[in-house]
């Protein structure tokens, strides 16, 4: 996935160092997460003070587990 927010400004800083610009928040699998607004407003503050069920970690874990399964499945198909 080509991420449009990753603006690359490569320039030779000196002989062996490449300078690039990266955002503080990487846009991630927007389609998968069906995220309406990419915002960081609720990320740093007191968002975990609650008495219910926060699913953000579960969503992330499921995404990676599914990705691993997909890769595993493809590898099996190729191996046949």
């Amino acid at each position: 996935m080509e991420d449009p927010t990753l603006r690359i400004e490569k320039e030779a800083l000196h002989a062996n160092v490449v300078r690039v610009t990266i955002p503080a928040k990487v846009a991630f699998d927007l389609k998968q997460m069906q995220k309406i607004t990419e915002s960081v407003l609720d990320q740093l503050g007191c968002a975990n003070c609650h008495s219910g069920h926060d699913i953000r970690f579960d969503i992330e874990k499921r995404f990676i587990v599914d990705t691993k399964l997909k890769v595993h499945s493809q590898a099996e198909l190729i191996g046949r």
């Binding site: 996935m1 080509e2 991420d3 990753l6 800083l13 062996n16 160092v17 490449v18 300078r19 690039v20 610009t21 990266i22 955002p23 503080a24 928040k25 990487v26 846009a27 991630f28 699998d29 998968q32 607004t37 990419e38 915002s39 960081v40 407003l41 995404f63 990676i64 990705t67």
Partner: peptide, 30 residues
């Protein structure tokens, strides 16, 4: 590196080099 992880892929076959990255603040879209 970040592009691979954004896709959920394990970063592989990246060429070693010295990079200095400037982290820029987000643009508030609200």
């Amino acid at each position: 590196l970040l592009d691979a992880l954004a896709r959920g892929d394990l970063p592989e076959n990246l060429t070693p080099a010295d990079y200095e990255a400037e982290i820029t603040p987000p643009i508030d879209k609200s």
